[in-house]
Amino acid sequence: MEQIKRLKINNDLGLHGRAAARIVELAGQYSSRLFFKKEDHEVDGSSILSILTLACPKGTEIQAKAVGEDSAELMDRLTELFKQRFGEQK
């Protein structure tokens, strides 16, 4: 099972440390594997450092891919997390 979706980064600070930490935290709750791709650069979504190296400011769109049994639910919650600006106010 595989889910692919394009997600937009809406918070002012972009994919900074705390936002990346929220993603890693979420990914850790599922057995599915998570990947992010920006341009040709694909990284492991369970690695906070890899996510940071994507260097995404506000407004960047990245591709998320979840692979595994619970990938649908993971993708839903991930979409929500991006929409909620990683819990940041702006």
């Binding site: 600070l13 972009g14 994919l15 900074h16 440390g17 450092l49 940071l52 190296t53 260097a55 400011p57």
Partner: peptide, 19 residues
């Protein structure tokens, strides 16, 4: 990791190398 981070344009992300 440091080499990858040095290429990042955004200081607040690049600085995480300190962590």
């Amino acid at each position: 990791i440091r080499q990858l981070f040095e290429k990042i344009d955004y200081e607040y992300i690049r600085d995480r190398i300190n962590d």
